[in-house]
């Protein structure tokens, strides 16, 4: 079985009396260490697919198996624990807690572990060094640029050493230079730290940083392929 495997996945939403079919009979296999870009127009279902893999949403039908765990059979508290151990989230708008310093934000996932305060701080600083922001550890999000905030968010995503990073438009709110820095960082995490990365993006240039690209349209995978090495 593949590292990430989706079999005959269907996802429907109720919108009033209407049923919206977001994903239709979707099958997908990903190996550990992959870096996948999910592309497609708005409403195509790419974020929904990302949420299913990240364990923050459940399919209407079908199986989602990630790192050996079938997510559909887990309770919400089991899923929460699984996410804390297996998944790192990177959001388009960073989702940092505004009243916490960068270091405290990065420490958040470690609050769910048995590490003591000094161990948490040490690990957070290591993660911040990885994203080259250890000199901004005491700054609050409001005191950082968009690119720096996203790097803090990536440090938060990797601090508990999850196997998988799910990134929802990680460069969607950034200028070109900051976006390039973030994408380069994701490549390092994939290649050197062996993280499996699934990234939703609208940006073809961003997608070129991934090893594989999948296109979704109206809930159906329409095309897939390997990318060229980004330039």
């Amino acid at each position: 079985m593949a590292f990430i495997e989706l079999n005959n996945v269907v996802k429907n939403y109720a919108k009033g009396s209407e049923v919206v079919h977001v994903l239709q009979d979707l099958n997908l296999s990903l190996e550990a260490g992959d870096f996948l870009a999910l592309m497609g127009p708005s409403g195509s279902g790419k974020s929904t697919l990302l949420n299913l893999i990240g364990g923050i949403d459940q399919p209407t039908a079908g199986r989602v198996v990630v790192a050996g765990s079938e997510l559909g059979s887990m309770s919400s508290s089991q899923l929460a624990k699984w996410r804390s151990e297996s998944i790192g989230f990177v959001f388009q708008f960073y989702n940092l807690l505004p009243f916490l310093t960068a270091q405290r934000n990065v420490e958040l996932p470690l609050l769910l572990t048995n590490l003591n305060g000094s161990q948490r701080k040490e690990n957070a600083m290591t993660a911040l060094r990885t994203v080259s922001l250890d000199d901004r550890a005491k700054h609050k999000p409001g005191e950082l640029s968009g690119g720096q905030q996203q790097r803090v968010a990536i440090a938060r995503a990797i601090v508990a050493d999850p196997q998988i990073l799910v990134c929802d438009e990680p460069t969607g709110d950034l200028d070109r230079q900051s976006a390039q820095e973030i994408l380069a960082l994701l490549e390092i995490l994939n290649e050197q730290f062996k993280k499996t990365i699934i990234m939703v993006t609208h940006d073809p240039l961003a997608a070129e940083h991934a090893k594989n690209i999948l296109h979704l349209d109206k809930g159906v995978l329409v095309e897939s392929g390997q990318t060229e090495v980004a330039t």
């Binding site: 929460a80 989230f89 959001f91 708008f93 989702n95 958040l108 996932p109 769910l112």
Partner: peptide, 14 residues
């Protein structure tokens, strides 16, 4: 709302 949802996504329970 987003702050709390982020905490839940990270793995905090309800």
């Amino acid at each position: 709302t987003i702050e709390i949802a982020t905490l839940r996504a990270i793995g905090f329970s309800s």
